[in-house]
Amino acid sequence: MSLYDVIFYLFALVTLVSAFMVVTTKNIVHAAFYLLFTFFGVAGIYALLGADFIAVVQLMVYVGGILVLILFGVMLTNKITNVQIRSGSTNLVAAAVVIGIFAGALLTMMLNTRWLVNPGKTLITTIPQIGSLLVKQYVLIFELLGILLLIALVGAASIARKEEREK
């Protein structure tokens, strides 16, 4: 068992345990902080897969952006002073059974398929190649995503602002 394997199992354990806690804990704020560890674990898995840039983007966008947004959502949609910040759950048994069957099917498929594994050479850093792909092959998607982010930002601000009363 090499060091790589040990680190992989460590990150996988952190990711899966905290993901399990996210979906089972009652307290929403605790769930948000468990989500932080899930995102860290996933970033570690990206780094183990040789995707250094994706790992950094994961940390910056998910941990720095989305998680903060979610925490804002928690804080703004619960009356913190008088109601405990809790989320109820519904249909626990039925959901566990159905998703257990689904996960079993998924795992059976993944373990029994003979994947075409043909690892190429591992790059020291992926950033130059990703940059050149983004401005050459994927330039249209890249620009469209820029526009989409602008639209999403304007749309979110427009949805969330206070309505002006008509007089």
Binding site: V22, N91, A95, A103
Partner: peptide
């Protein structure tokens, strides 16, 4: 696959939109 199943479980069972 496990992460996906946990996520699906959360989406299906949770009541709070967040």
């Amino acid at each position: 696959a496990f992460l996906f199943s946990f996520g699906l479980y959360g989406v299906v069972t949770r009541k709070n939109a967040v």
